[in-house]
Nucleic acid binder design. Structure first.
Length: 125
DNA sequence: GGCCTGATTGTTGAG
DNA sequence: CTCAACAATCAGGCC
């Protein structure tokens, strides 16, 4: 139980020497989630996203004029940094639980990947 | 009319 | 060890 007890462990010493933002468009398949989940577990929302859910509601209440998440994201990020570690821990804890589940799904995904080939069987659909 | 981008940080997987 | 891409959201912008 100590593996991740300290949920709050945001690897701080990881400077990212790659400030080069993704050009202009991100090669992200945003169209539709198709069924890639069948073999590729999608990453769970991070603590930041959970905080966003709560912050987003509050932000819109006080800022009904706000546009979309782009503005909120900035405000959220700024606030996130100002938040106390203990407060963030609350969200980290939630994300940690989700990661545990995701980690299990990923373990199976990898296991399946190494175990056998993926013959896109595909029968359904 | 329909599809894509943009911004936030964190997290994880692969090389 | 290190990078890189992705996770939600949502409204606006473009052709």
């Amino acid at each position: 139980m100590k593996t991740r007890s300290s949920a709050a462990a945001p690897a701080p010493a990881r400077s990212v020497p790659a400030p080069a933002r993704r050009a202009t468009t991100k090669p992200r398949a945003k169209k539709k989630p198709l069924k890639d989940d069948r073999n590729k577990p999608k990453k769970p929302p991070t603590a930041f996203f959970y905080f966003l859910e709560d912050f987003r509601k509050t932000y819109q209440q006080e800022n009904p004029d706000v546009k979309s998440m782009r503005d909120i994201g900035k405000a959220c990020g700024e606030k996130w940094k100002t938040m106390s570690f203990e407060e963030k821990v609350a969200y980290y804890d939630i994300a940690t639980e989700k990661r545990a589940e995701f980690e299990r799904a990923m373990a199976e995904y990898i296991k399946r990947k190494e175990s056998g080939d993926f013959s896109e069987e595909s029968d359904y659909e």
